[in-house]
């Protein structure tokens, strides 16, 4: 019994267990996610800039480094990694503004 056969059996078990979720659009093209793009990366960077401007207190150092690093990664083609850092920066800003 080779690895491929084992994998097939594994997928069989997978389908057996995941039988409650129906497969959608099996024949059509996959749906495209729009939040993994350089455009979204720029959008997030702009949002951080707006949030910094509206913030009352000083900008945390972490936010600056995360946003800089995120933008650089997006620019280097590491879009998802860059977006992740920008999201973290934005989350820190949001939490800072929400804090009393």
């Amino acid at each position: 019994m080779d690895v491929r056969a084992i994998r097939s059996l594994g997928l069989g078990l997978l389908l057996l267990n995941g039988g409650t979720a129906a497969a959608a659009g099996a024949d059509s093209a996959p749906s495209v996610v729009t939040t993994d793009t350089p455009e979204y990366c720029q959008k997030l960077f702009d949002r951080i800039g707006q949030a910094i401007q509206t913030a009352t207190g000083p900008t945390p150092v972490e936010v600056a480094s995360l946003s800089t690093e995120g933008k650089r990664m997006c620019h280097d083609g590491l879009t998802r990694g860059g977006i992740l850092r920008l999201r973290r920066a934005l989350l820190i800003l949001e939490q800072g503004s929400a804090a009393p």
């Binding site: 995941g18 409650t20 979720a21 129906a22 497969a23 959608a24 659009g25 099996a26 059509s28 996959p30 749906s31 495209v32 996610v33």
Partner: peptide
């Protein structure tokens, strides 16, 4: 996405 027609029914979607 095509095929996601029934509310409340979980679908497995290729993205």
């Amino acid at each position: 996405p095509a095929g996601v027609d029934d509310p409340g029914q979980p679908y497995e979607l290729r993205v």
